[in-house]
Design a protein around this nucleic acid. Structure first.
Lengths: 348, 348
DNA sequence: TCCTGTATAGAAAGCGCTTGCTGTAACGCT
DNA sequence: AGCGTTACAGCAAGCGCTTTCTATACAGGA
């Protein structure tokens, strides 16, 4: 059998209660006794039984991080930042909290399943990252779930995600709308009037907000939008590649392509190159997020930088109660326009 | 208070034992009773108490996945594959297992801390991904930890990592040595005789094996290696950028740069471009891993494709006991040389 | 010297679930 | 009719910890 608290107690000649107190350090224990207990723990290689401890104390050291796609650096960067804050300051996995990343794959069902699993584990906190699916029943289901989690004492933080109605979840959102608008305005400023837009999956807040920003910019400059100029796809390179082909099949006269995110933009670049169009001489391209590889694209990608790491870190700290929640429970971070080589004046 | 099993039992007019059996489905229960219980569960919105269940049953549904850097797609892709297998076939997060990704940041201490945390949670399985730190005391500590985990009934699988001595951990490794050799041989075959090598961090198995392969290729073709031609760095873009500058400062006559991985190679490309060297006309570049963005680099990157997703999926299945372990507990996957635009014949 | 206060340790009652064992009908067999 | 089976359902004993409450010892004050 594995070593139990009682074994340690026996070896240290104290009661189990004392061992527990030494381990938790939340009750005065004489220095000599503590010594003895600690040595016994060491001698026996004792490891606390998490479930038993969680059951008795009605608390747990699990913190859940939900991401849409763990293979996407967008989420990886946020998750990494959240995790390092959750694991304790100083970068050590101290504080002894187990930060766990759960990959929903963007599926509403899996999102709910993971929330239930975390609820079952009585997680100390849950951080949901990235855009939400905008399907009303699902939204309601998630809100209900979050409410129950909060009732059970789980701290809920949303990172890069709009507020959840009827919950007291803290929301750290990105100004996707403003970023999208600024980006398109940059292109318009360069002289572009015929802009294709490769949007993300439908029914996603991120998709909608970025697209709204784009359209606001067009409208603001009196540019009538052609419905052929918008294509929806996934948030990946492949999708950008295919959507670009489709876009130019529909209207070969486009002078710019705005993508839902950097991965999509990279795919768009590939498609343009293969079809013999130069960037940015023939067509300008813009992305969103400013992921690490974007600066290395050739030409480097014009995009909107989102403070993923900062937001993640903050979300982690709030989840741990180490930072106060923003007033109103909502904070919005702006994106920063990064003008690089992939955008230029259109060919006349 | 939250709803307990007893509450459900009361509402369904059965004993707690029966409710437990309905929920676990591991004991015959009359259909009508089951119905009644299920309805009560639904009515009360009951969620099992994980810790209590784990304590009583002495098992848990937690599966740990250790990665060096969650923001790096290399690990993201493996983690994603592992997780989807762990969460049950069909992609649903069914099977009700909580696959948790733990980010060690490449730190030996955090690796051990996470292993202890998982041991504490009595994890059902643990998958360690990526290269190991080759520091003897640390190696021994990890092996000891893995042994204790196994004693406690935790299944241990290594994915993309060499076998752990004195444990019965299943190891799914990559043939980094062979891949490195093949890659360099490709370059030599093109006519290169002066090759720079940007290695990963020292004391890492992955770093060592890839470098060994490179050197084996050189030796096999009678090319004497200049110590100035090897620089160590981190596994990221930045490191590749700096290392390349250093490499050409030391020896401007190099005709090829082989990088520890694709991110490093991308950084190398940026440095070369900025210093006015064309790829591959002036200098050829090669990476390793074939991450998704590598094909989109300009020119696209010559590299070695590793079956990350396949290996991860297999590791996940083995961890779940859904696939038999390979004979001897070890399986090695070969890399596939991907010749693309970044490598060419050297300028004469 | 006696009493009160302070510091420390122990006893024991759970936390909410699982499961071996013990009923107890209903059924089919000889 | 008698009895072994089968099919469920319940009882109750933990699982290994935490924590409240109680006990003890010693110090200091009156």
């Amino acid at each position: 059998m594995t070593v139990t608290l009682a074994d340690v107690a026996a070896r240290a000649q104290v009661s189990p209660a004392t061992v527990s107190r030494v381990l938790n350090g939340n009750y005065p224990v004489a220095a000599t006794t503590r010594e003895r207990v600690l040595r016994a723990v060491d001698d026996l290689d004792y490891v606390l039984n998490g479930p038993a401890s969680a059951l008795a104390a009605a608390t747990s050291d699990l913190v859940g991080i939900l991401v849409n796609d763990i293979a996407d650096p967008f989420f990886g960067i946020m998750a990494s930042a959240i995790q390092s804050e959750v694991s304790g300051p100083g970068g050590r996995a101290g504080g002894e909290r187990l930060a766990v990343v759960c990959n929903t794959g963007g599926s509403p069902e899996r999102e709910l399943t993971y929330l239930t699993l975390l609820q079952r584990q009585r997680a100390a906190a849950v951080v949901l990252t990235g855009g939400a699916v905008e399907n009303p029943p699902h939204l309601a289901a998630v809100s209900a779930k979050l409410r129950r989690l909060e009732e059970a004492g789980t701290k809920v933080v949303l990172c890069g995600r709009p507020p959840a109605p009827d919950t007291s979840a803290i929301a750290l959102t990105f100004d996707n709308r403003g970023g999208g608008q600024e980006l398109t305005e940059h292109l318009i400023g360069l002289g572009h009037r015929r802009l294709g837009y490769i949007a993300g999956p439908e029914e996603r807040t991120t998709t909608r907000h970025r697209l709204e920003g784009h359209r606001a910019a067009l409208a603001g400059h009196g540019i009538a939008e052609d419905p052929r100029w918008t294509v929806h796809g996934r948030y990946d390179r492949r999708s950008g590649y295919e959507a670009t082909l489709e876009l130019f099949r529909r209207d070969p006269s486009l002078t710019a392509v705005v993508a839902a995110n950097d991965s999509v933009a990279i795919g768009a670049c590939a498609a343009l190159r293969e079809s013999g169009r130069r960037i940015p001489e023939d067509v300008s391209v813009a992305g969103f997020d400013d992921l690490p590889f974007s600066v290395d694209a050739v030409p480097s990608l014009t995009t909107v930088r989102l403070p993923l790491s900062e937001a993640g870190a903050r979300a982690g700290r709030i989840a741990m109660g180490r930072e106060e929640a923003p007033p109103g429970g909502i904070a919005t971070a702006r994106g920063e326009l990064m003008v690089r080589g992939s955008s230029g004046v259109p060919r006349s």
